[in-house]
């Protein structure tokens, strides 16, 4: 039998984080109750996803017209914490358009909606854990957290892995973004090295000449370890 190692607290943003105002009334005040990893948690949704459609990986080709903005390739590998590839797992993304506006009724930012951009995609990783999306570089946008607050450009990622415990939802940022230094969500990750793992690398190898710049974003999930079952 195996278990999944608990994440290093230095990588986990605290759910109570006053600089991010919305955490105030939403973080549990009681301590989390430590429980053993049972068959319930060691299993997880690996079969419940339809095969991604042929254009699910290319957010620039999901409409009759072409979305506005800077075309980019975002690719990387999903690995576990022993650096083994996580193959055949679903990776989902969602994001704002080039003007910093989501195709969502509750986004009231005064920036144009792009009729040719939905902003959602999904792929399955290949045998070596690789995924690849073609999309538009999202714009920064203001939010109401504090005076003159702006979210740095980011792409939301959702990854499943082989178990309920390997689930990860995170955000990918862009290198050199001056807004990162002011963002309470990015900065909530305690460890500076861990924070940097949320910033994609510019990668000339991933660039499509004449078409799109390339960014590399590797994702590391909790991995199984052959340890004695916890009592």
């Amino acid at each position: 039998m195996f278990t999944y190692r608990r994440p290093d607290p230095a990588t986990l943003p605290p759910n109570n984080h006053p600089p991010y105002r919305s955490t105030a009334l939403r973080h549990p005040r009681e301590p989390l109750v430590v429980v053993p990893q049972t068959l319930s948690e060691l299993t997880g949704p690996v079969y419940e996803h339809q095969a991604p459609g042929p254009l699910d990986h290319d957010l620039t080709r999901q409409h009759p017209g072409t979305p506005l903005g800077e075309r980019i390739v975002v690719a990387g590998r999903v690995l576990d914490d022993s650096e083994r590839p996580v193959s055949d797992t679903v990776v989902e993304i969602w994001q704002a358009n080039a003007a910093g506006r989501y195709a969502h009724y509750s986004d009231t930012h005064d920036a144009p909606v792009d009729p040719n951009f939905s902003g959602a995609g999904r792929v399955r990783t290949d045998g070596a854990g690789w995924f690849r999306f073609v999309t538009i570089k999202p714009g920064a946008y203001p939010w109401h957290n504090h005076e003159n607050a702006w979210r740095p450009a980011h792409i939301h990622f959702s990854v499943f892995g082989p178990s309920f415990l390997t689930r990860l939802v995170t955000q990918m940022y862009f290198p050199g973004d001056p807004l990162l230094a002011f963002d309470p969500i990015f900065k909530a990750v305690p460890d500076a090295g861990a924070r940097q793992r949320l910033v994609a690398g510019f990668d000339l190898e991933l660039t499509e000449p004449g078409l799109a710049l390339g960014y590399r974003f590797d994702i590391v999930l909790r991995g199984p370890h052959a340890t004695p079952m916890e009592a």
Binding site: D8, Q50, P52, W94, Q95, S106, H156
Partner: peptide, 25 residues
């Protein structure tokens, strides 16, 4: 020594963009 995992970040308020195109069975 294991490789550190990718940190979590909030889903934020706009995950409906993803669920609208959901392909979960």
């Amino acid at each position: 020594m294991s490789k550190p995992i990718t940190p979590w970040q909030t889903v934020g308020p706009f995950f409906g963009v993803l669920l609208r195109h959901d392909r979960v069975v």
